[in-house]
Amino acid sequence: MTVAVVDDHPVVVEGVRTWIAQDPRARVRIVSAGADLNAVRRGAGQSADVILLDLELNGELMLGALTELVDSGRRVIVFSQHVDEETVRAALDAGASAYVTKQEGPQFLVDAIVETAQDRPAVPPAMAGAMLSDQRPHLAPQERAALLLWFQSRSKAAVAERMGIRETTVKQYIDRARVKYGQVGRHAASKAALLARAIEDGLIRADDIEDR
């Protein structure tokens, strides 16, 4: 599995390289590293399985860039010095697959990369703390839109055509929604279970399901 690291501190990038190299699973490879977001948009990191994104680059919070990357179908883990619950929730609301603080160490970071690359839940400590008081998953707008169209009895191919994206991206959005429900301990393996969860949480209204 491959990862693109976006961080403006070379010492952090080298630390991540070392942590990954020392991991006994030895299945993670960095394909791009540095502070240039264009490297993951159009450069060497554009095909990476996971993007590891520093939430603050050159003094600016990257929530907008995070949303853009998620909306384009990318799996993004936020790796940040910010530890407050408000920031963690904001990143999850923007669609981050996981949130790891820079104080949490190599095990949590590498675990998050491995699990996220395989569309499995990853809940590092800071993320778990932020989620304790909120048992609803944090779905990105595109994930919610894909779910609604899919619940309207559309095929994934039809959803892709409606949204102007690839069918594989639609599947990623739906799979990620399932993963995020798993992260809060509310698994939804079937389409019916996922629909019930979404209605229960007010993410989708029952009358929204009627095909238009």
Rank of each mutant, 00 (worst) to 15 (best):
Q118L: 09
I204L: 09
A91S: 13
L63P: 00
I174E: 08
D201Q: 00
A177L: 06
E56N: 11
L52G: 10
S32T: 11
I51D: 03
V16H: 08
E200F: 01
R42L: 00
D119C: 04
G129L: 15
E85P: 10
A91T: 03
S32F: 06
P137Y: 10
A44K: 06
E104H: 13
G43C: 05
I204M: 11
R166L: 11
T169M: 04
T168Y: 07
T67A: 08
Q152M: 08
A33I: 04
R162H: 15
I204Q: 03
S47C: 07
G15A: 11
F108V: 11
Q22A: 13
V11Q: 03
S72N: 12
L53T: 05
R186D: 15
D93W: 01
I51N: 06
A145R: 13
D134Y: 08
D36Q: 13
H138L: 02
T67C: 02
P10T: 12
L57C: 05
W150E: 01
L139R: 03
G182I: 13
R197K: 05
L55S: 14
R75Y: 03
M163R: 13
G182W: 05
Y173A: 12
S32A: 15
G182P: 09
P106E: 11
A177V: 04
A160Q: 04
W19P: 06
G129S: 15
G15R: 11
I77L: 12
K102D: 15
V50H: 13
A128C: 05
L52C: 05
D134Q: 09
V179F: 01
N38L: 07
Q135S: 05
L203I: 00
D54Y: 01
A90R: 12
M1I: 08
L53H: 03
R136P: 01
Q135E: 02
P137F: 13
F108C: 05
T116E: 13
R42G: 01
F79H: 14
K171P: 00
E60C: 12
A94K: 14
A128K: 09
S97P: 00
G15D: 12
V5C: 10
E115P: 02
